[in-house]
Deep mutational scan, measured.
Amino acid sequence: GTEIELESKNGQREHYTATSEDEARKIIEKAVRRGIKRIELRGASEQLIRDMQEIAKQIGLQYRTDGSL
């Protein structure tokens, strides 16, 4: 699965493990709508990382991946 670590603007951290790319995408989209400061992805697919970079650029988000592409 993909591990997703979120940090909201007030510094609250949340951790999710998505079993599918679809689920990961839903978690990320929800977080973005809620207003999130930072997202870290571990074990994400190349496609998901590309999507994440696109989203991050659009809304000026900090993100990090573990680089295991």
Score class of each variant (00 low, 15 high):
Gly1Lys: 13
Thr2Asn: 01
Thr2Ser: 03
Thr2His: 04
Thr2Leu: 12
Thr2Gly: 05
Ile4Gln: 01
Ile4Glu: 00
Ile4Cys: 03
Ile4Arg: 01
Glu5Gly: 07
Glu5Gln: 09
Glu5Trp: 14
Glu5Met: 14
Leu6Ile: 15
Leu6Trp: 11
Leu6Asp: 01
Leu6Gln: 02
Glu7Thr: 13
Glu7Tyr: 13
Glu7Phe: 13
Ser8Tyr: 15
Ser8Val: 09
Ser8Lys: 07
Ser8Gly: 10
Ser8Met: 14
Lys9Asn: 11
Lys9Leu: 14
Lys9Val: 12
Lys9His: 12
Lys9Cys: 15
Lys9Gln: 12
Asn10Glu: 11
Asn10Val: 05
Asn10Pro: 03
Asn10Leu: 07
Asn10Tyr: 10
Gly11Pro: 01
Gly11His: 03
Gly11Trp: 01
Gly11Gln: 02
Gln12Val: 10
Gln12Ile: 09
Gln12Arg: 12
Gln12Asp: 12
Arg13Ser: 06
Arg13Asp: 01
Arg13Cys: 10
Arg13Met: 07
Glu14Leu: 11
Glu14Ile: 13
Glu14Pro: 00
Glu14Val: 09
Glu14Asp: 05
Glu14Asn: 06
Glu14Gln: 09
His15Lys: 12
His15Thr: 12
His15Pro: 01
His15Gly: 03
His15Glu: 04
His15Trp: 12
His15Ala: 07
Tyr16Cys: 04
Tyr16Met: 03
Tyr16Gln: 01
Thr17Pro: 02
Thr17Cys: 13
Thr17Lys: 11
Thr17Met: 12
Ala18Asp: 06
Ala18Trp: 08
Ala18Thr: 10
Thr19Val: 13
Thr19Gln: 13
Thr19Ile: 11
Ser20Arg: 04
Ser20Ile: 02
Ser20Glu: 03
Ser20Phe: 03
Ser20Asn: 11
Glu21Tyr: 14
Glu21Gly: 04
Glu21Cys: 06
Glu21Ile: 09
Glu21Ser: 06
Asp22Leu: 08
Asp22Asn: 06
Glu23Ser: 04
Glu23His: 06
Glu23Asn: 04
Glu23Gly: 03
Glu23Asp: 07
Ala24Leu: 07
Ala24Lys: 00
Ala24Ser: 02
Ala24Thr: 03
Ala24Asn: 00
Ala24Gly: 02
Arg25Trp: 10
Arg25Tyr: 10
Arg25Ile: 08
Arg25Pro: 00
Arg25Asp: 00
Lys26Met: 12
Lys26Thr: 10
Lys26Ala: 12
Lys26Cys: 11
Ile27Asn: 00
Ile27Leu: 05
Ile27Glu: 01
Ile27Thr: 01
Ile27Asp: 00
Ile28Ser: 00
Ile28Gly: 00
Ile28Arg: 00
Ile28His: 00
Ile28Cys: 03
Ile28Thr: 01
Ile28Met: 06
Ile28Trp: 02
Ile28Tyr: 02
Ile28Pro: 00
Glu29Ser: 09
Glu29His: 09
Lys30Gln: 13
Lys30Asn: 13
Lys30Arg: 12
Lys30Tyr: 14
Lys30Cys: 13
Lys30Met: 15
Ala31Ile: 06
Ala31Thr: 02
Ala31Glu: 02
Ala31Gln: 03
Ala31Lys: 02
Ala31Pro: 00
Val32Ile: 14
Val32Cys: 09
Val32Asn: 01
Val32Gly: 02
Arg33Gln: 13
Arg33Ala: 12
Arg33Pro: 03
Arg33Glu: 09
Arg33Ser: 09
Arg34Met: 14
Arg34Tyr: 05
Gly35Thr: 02
Gly35Lys: 04
Gly35Met: 05
Ile36Tyr: 12
Ile36Ser: 03
Lys37Pro: 03
Lys37Tyr: 10
Lys37Ser: 08
Lys37Gln: 09
Arg38Tyr: 14
Arg38Ile: 05
Arg38Glu: 03
Arg38Thr: 05
Arg38Gly: 04
Ile39Tyr: 02
Ile39His: 00
Glu40His: 13
Glu40Arg: 15
Glu40Tyr: 15
Leu41Gln: 00
Arg42Trp: 13
Arg42Lys: 08
Gly43Gln: 05
Gly43Asn: 13
Ala44Asp: 01
Ala44Glu: 01
Ala44Cys: 07
Ala44Gln: 02
Ser45Pro: 05
Ser45Trp: 03
Ser45Thr: 07
Ser45Asp: 03
Ser45Gly: 05
Ser45Val: 02
Glu46Asp: 09
Glu46Met: 12
Glu46Thr: 09
Glu46Gly: 05
Glu46Ile: 11
Glu46Trp: 09
Gln47Phe: 05
Leu48Val: 03
Leu48Ser: 01
Leu48Thr: 04
Leu48Met: 05
Leu48Arg: 00
Leu48Ala: 01
Ile49Gly: 02
Ile49Asp: 05
Ile49Ser: 07
Ile49Pro: 00
Ile49Met: 09
Arg50Cys: 06
Arg50Tyr: 07
Arg50Asp: 03
Asp51Thr: 13
Asp51Trp: 15
Asp51Ser: 09
Met52Glu: 00
Gln53Met: 14
Gln53Leu: 11
Gln53Phe: 13
Glu54Tyr: 08
Glu54Thr: 10
Ile55Gln: 02
Ile55Gly: 00
Ala56Lys: 02
Ala56Tyr: 06
Ala56Met: 05
Ala56His: 03
Lys57Tyr: 07
Lys57Gly: 06
Gln58Arg: 12
Gln58Asp: 07
Gln58Thr: 11
Gln58Ser: 11
Gln58Phe: 06
Ile59Asp: 04
Gly60Met: 06
Leu61Tyr: 10
Leu61Arg: 04
Leu61Ala: 08
Leu61His: 04
Gln62Ala: 07
Gln62Cys: 15
Gln62Asn: 06
Gln62Phe: 13
Tyr63Val: 15
Tyr63Ala: 13
Tyr63Asp: 10
Tyr63His: 08
Tyr63Glu: 08
Arg64Ile: 15
Arg64Trp: 15
Thr65Phe: 06
Thr65Met: 05
Asp66Phe: 03
Asp66Trp: 02
Asp66Thr: 05
Asp66Cys: 15
Asp66Ile: 05
Asp66Leu: 04
Gly67Gln: 05
Gly67Tyr: 02
Gly67Asn: 07
Gly67Ala: 05
Gly67Arg: 03
Gly67Pro: 07
Ser68Arg: 03
Ser68Thr: 10
Ser68Glu: 10
Leu69Lys: 04
Leu69Thr: 06
Leu69Ala: 07
